[in-house]
Amino acid sequence: MPLDIPGLPPLAAFDVGGEIYVTSNVCTHNVALLSDGFFEGDTIECPLHGGCFNVRTGEATQFPCEVPLQTFPVIVEGDDLYTEIKDR
């Protein structure tokens, strides 16, 4: 699901077997929103050109995606989800 937080770049949260992972929501290949794509296991497939990323590591696993996706550490406390974003 997309996480749109004012002042932050678009983020996405993925549920891999109960474990939550947070990544950038923007495909590194051609700027599509990954939350519009297809999610299977731990792989998100971009809706635009079908490239894929592993959401746990950010690794680009399918052409045309080659640049890894930014991932963010996640801390779950009860119903709240925290992540740490280091500004450039």
Binding site: P2, D4, P6, G7, L8, P9, P10, V26, N30, V31, L33, L48
Partner: peptide, 23 residues
């Protein structure tokens, strides 16, 4: 449209709900 998305979404951090285009 790709260049504009990179500029506005990633660099300028404009919320995606404020960008309107059809690809």
């Amino acid at each position: 449209t790709d260049a504009l998305q990179r500029l506005l979404m990633l660099e300028k951090r404009v919320p995606t709900a404020q960008l309107h285009f059809d690809r």
